[in-house]
Amino acid sequence: MKAYLGVDVGSVSTNFVLMDETGHVLESLYIRTMGQPIQAIQDGLKKLGQGLPPSLRILGAGTTGSARQLSGVIIGADIVKNEITAHAVAALHCIPDVQTVMEIGGQDSKLIVIRDGIVVDFAMNTVCSAGTGSFLDQQAGRLGIPIEEFGALALKSKHPVRIAGRCSVFAESDMIHKQQMGHSTSDIVAGLCDALVRNYLNNVGKGKSIAAPVIFQGGVAANLGIRNAFEKELQLPITVPEHFDVMGALGMAILAKEAVARSGKTSFRGFAASELEFTSTSFECSGCANRCEIVEIKQSKAILARWGDRCRKWQDATTSSEVVAG
């Protein structure tokens, strides 16, 4: 059997998808990054590799997410892409005539506008992460509701209260206030969902045209309350794809397939990459006033990659002695 691997290393979760040659998802894995991207990638590879038949061959691999460069080096990716493109590719794979992609992840939210199968516009949250997964997690924790039940509870509400959703800190104060006023938890939770949806549409969606079919993906798409609030606010049906929580990784598996079709070979290191020892260190370059922070990735003693330098002298050199600071 043959498959393509897609990896999405984000701030909150690290996701893996194994896709067969026909575009079906064979395996998917969603694990917490916990601030340790290298560890998360290796743990994921190990877990994924254990359950697979020995006959399975990985023909190509791709990475995305905020740690896409790092994960690309570690797994030996054939293609490294930004999250927006990866999510758009996966959405188009699931709904070929999709026009709007809403993606809400751990700390990011995006809106991608697609017309006739190509991305024509996009937006990401810039100065505020109110309404993303981390905040919902935190509030569910504070209310003592398991995050999995959060959405169902919101659906029970008859009269959602109005919560100030402009800023997560103020939203929290407002929720506490509403609790103290005696509103029911389900009304507060539903109110929070409405507020977050308003915030998303006003910030990320400002000035963008949202047309059906609309696809909703990212970890937050699991939340029925948010899903429902979106449908109410947009007056449009919303589709949540089967693999909504690993769409970035799925997009990369698809792009890896395309990349390998062009290059004819893969640079994937194999699942054994989970056993290798990778270390990352960083230092400040004193070569000029820019004082760039250089990141260095090593596998045992060998330098695999460096980045962070504006002048690229570190990126281009493979041994420390090639660079003379100054």
């Binding site: 892409k81 999250e83 493109t85 991305v119 996009f122 990401m124």
Partner: peptide, 15 residues
């Protein structure tokens, strides 16, 4: 954040 947006924008323009 800036380079993610620029990369995505360049992808968009290329396609």
């Amino acid at each position: 954040g800036v380079s993610t947006r620029l990369e995505a924008f360049v992808d968009l323009l290329t396609m």
